[in-house]
Simulated assay, not measured.
Amino acid sequence: MPEVTLDALIPQASAEDVFDRLRDFAAYPKYTDAVREVSVTDTGGDTMDSDWSVNFRNGILCWSERDRINADTLSIDFTQTDGDFDTFDGSWKVYSHPDGAVTVRFTATFDLGMPSLAAIIDPIACQALTEAISLILLGLLGDHITLTAPEPVPVPADTP
């Protein structure tokens, strides 16, 4: 499955404040046009369900996910439960630096469910996902952040 990883470096920030903004999914549409709508249902404890509608290239992707929030480790793990992807799983992680900066790392793997077209579509989907997450991070955290995206490399479908 293809994997996308994107880092955002925020100078002079509080990791806890960044994490609080990151986990407020319902507010995302206020910060960026990349996200059309997010509805959140608290399922108790550190778990919630969220339904997403996101602009993606020339269309709209919709999915539902289960989100596990860990405020102690400043991390969010998500797993798609229904939607346009066959599978979509990943995480958000916030890291503090000794110099007062903070890094947010987004990592996701996905399967669009089109194995015969994966060689063509997966690289395009990786780029589109990177662009969408970049817009979300810039909207949430401000244009003073530095984004770095390692070159995504889709894994061939026949790889275990």
Rank of each mutant, 00 (worst) to 15 (best):
P156I: 09
E37Q: 15
P160N: 10
D143Q: 10
S14V: 11
D46Y: 04
P115V: 04
T109H: 02
D46S: 15
L61P: 01
F85Q: 03
L74Q: 15
S53N: 07
F88S: 00
R68N: 12
K30L: 09
R57E: 13
V4C: 05
D122M: 02
A26L: 06
A34S: 15
V155G: 00
V4L: 10
M1C: 04
D33V: 02
I10Y: 07
V40W: 13
V104Y: 01
D72A: 15
P98W: 02
T47Y: 04
L135Y: 04
N58S: 14
D122S: 06
T109P: 01
R68Y: 03
A128M: 07
T81W: 02
L147A: 09
H144W: 01
S96Q: 11
D7E: 08
D82V: 01
S75Y: 05
A118P: 00
S53R: 15
D24M: 08
I69L: 13
H144F: 03
S96W: 02
I76N: 06
Y28Q: 06
P29H: 08
A101S: 15
C126K: 02
P123N: 09
D143P: 05
L140M: 12
D42Q: 15
I69K: 11
G59C: 14
F25P: 07
Y28S: 08
L138K: 14
A132N: 14
Q12H: 14
S134W: 02
K30R: 13
S53D: 10
A71Q: 14
F25A: 12
I136S: 07
T130C: 04
A27T: 15
L112A: 12
G44A: 09
G83D: 06
S96N: 07
L135T: 07
P160G: 12
A27C: 06
F88H: 04
W52T: 11
S91F: 10
P150W: 08
R57A: 15
A15H: 05
L137N: 09
T5D: 00
P156W: 07
G139N: 07
I10A: 05
A149P: 01
N58P: 02
P154G: 08
N58T: 13
S75F: 04
A101K: 12
N55M: 09
T159F: 13
V40K: 09
L138W: 00
Q80A: 05
D24Y: 05
A157D: 09
S75D: 06
S53H: 08
V35L: 12
A149D: 01
D77P: 00
G44L: 09
G90Y: 03
D46F: 03
T47P: 02
D51F: 05
V94Q: 08
S39A: 12
G100C: 11
A13G: 14
D20L: 12
A8F: 03
A34N: 10
L138F: 06
I124P: 01
V40F: 12
V35R: 10
L138N: 11
E3W: 00
F88Y: 14
N58G: 13
S39K: 14
A149M: 01
T146A: 12
A149I: 13
T41K: 15
S91L: 11
G142Q: 08
I69E: 04
D7R: 14
A8Q: 06
T32G: 10
D49K: 12
L141S: 05
V40S: 12
P160T: 08
L74H: 14
V54R: 08
R21S: 11
I69C: 07
T130P: 00
G113H: 10
F110K: 00
H144R: 11
